[in-house]
Design a protein around this nucleic acid. Structure first.
Lengths: 217, 217
DNA sequence: TAGATTGTTAATCGATTAACAATC
DNA sequence: TAGATTGTTAATCGATTAACAATC
């Protein structure tokens, strides 16, 4: 068993993204009572190549059995470990405007083991409240509160103009993963990972393809 | 002026995504009163390569002036035209649960010229209501209503288990662009473009990098 | 004209896929 | 053992970057 060895190559981010997609599939297979699955079967589900599935997994270890495939439950456990899903993560949310409030009420985070543990806003009217179970603090207090609670992940839902300043605070507080809903490019040190959820960009991309279809027909 | 010519090469989706990022930048530059900008200046803003900026633009025409760069206003107009942003798009929203309701109240769509024109749910208690200005219909009526109103874009916010059935209805109704919030891979004909907004996958990716940072330190 | 920057071709890089020896 | 499928190397493909003639 070499599953604990460190990856020898730089791992492409797309491979990581695919791991969580494989994981979702394994959960379904396990629910169906499927005990083992081949890379070909996994690949078929997403229109991927079986070599890619094997390669993605091989970045992290040898999880398969030649001639048989992968044991569903065992692989699921390994992927959960690799992705860091064996622990519940506490997440800070910054910005309680239209979008931030929606996210605070969204149950998707909790369902997936990510607990919104603290919210921040610059509106004195909101500071001190509790929304659901989540306490609301002044943005000025990001650094001490996140440090004390050892929060390592944050969601940014402030206007684009304020996003970089907020990011700098989060970075200073030791955060190393940010889910960014602000429509702007954040500048962060290398140790920090940012995932942009830019609805604006996605809508414009869709608009392009729709326009194109309209022209073509 | 060859700006209207059809693209000769297949255009990578990433290039389209970058176009809308350039557009955002041009809006800022225009607000600052900057009349012209070089590919190098644009590239610097995002840590991209200037050749890439030029190449992305060149897929669609010759918009620059040698020795000078690109006229801000002119390029902005061209990008808006290419992306299909000169018209307001009507968008259908399917699913009024926790997430769908949040999206209905989210002002980001309207702000960007995408108008939520109709919502659909399978809960009889919601059907017939108006939320804000948006009428709520039964999901069974997707096809006739979208056809009649010629709606070409849709947002899916239903549970994963229902997403494919909803998609099939949208496709039958003539939709050709889908923003999918359901955590599942949708199968669609080639003419239809899907953008997945998979918070679950993004959170897991962040979890991976956070775990890794934690291990490294 | 001299300097600057485009548009485009060629070189490089990285990711995907094919192929196959190892082995269950 | 025979058949199947992994893990991994080599080949392919596509996207990014460098380089430079064209030209404002």
């Amino acid at each position: 068993m070499k599953s604990q060895r460190l990856a020898r190559h730089r791992i492409p981010e797309r491979a990581i993204t695919r791991l969580s997609i494989y994981l979702r599939c394994l959960e379904e297979l396990l629910a169906d009572g499927t005990l083992a699955v081949s890379s070909q079967q996994l690949a078929n589900r997403f229109g991927l190549n079986s070599a890619q599935v094997r390669k993605d997994l091989a970045y992290f270890g040898q999880f398969g059995v030649r001639g048989l495939g992968y044991y569903t439950g065992e692989l699921k456990g390994n992927l959960e470990r690799i992705l860091g899903l064996t622990q519940q993560w506490e997440v800070a949310l910054v910005g309680l405007g239209n979008l931030g409030s929606a996210l605070l009420n969204y149950r998707g985070f909790q369902q997936r083991g990510f607990r919104l543990a603290a919210a921040f806003d610059n509106d004195a009217g909101k500071v001190g409240m509790r929304i659901g179970r989540v306490p609301v603090f002044d943005v000025e207090r990001i650094v001490p509160i996140l440090k004390r609670r050892r929060i390592k992940m944050a969601v940014i839902a402030v206007p684009a103009a304020a996003a970089q300043a907020v990011t700098d605070q989060l970075v200073a507080a030791g955060v190393n993963a940010i889910l960014n809903f602000a429509p702007t490019q954040l500048s962060v040190p290398k140790r920090v990972k940012v995932q942009n959820v830019d609805l604006s960009v996605m809508l414009k991309t869709l608009s392009f393809y729709t326009t194109r279809s309209a022209r073509a027909s």
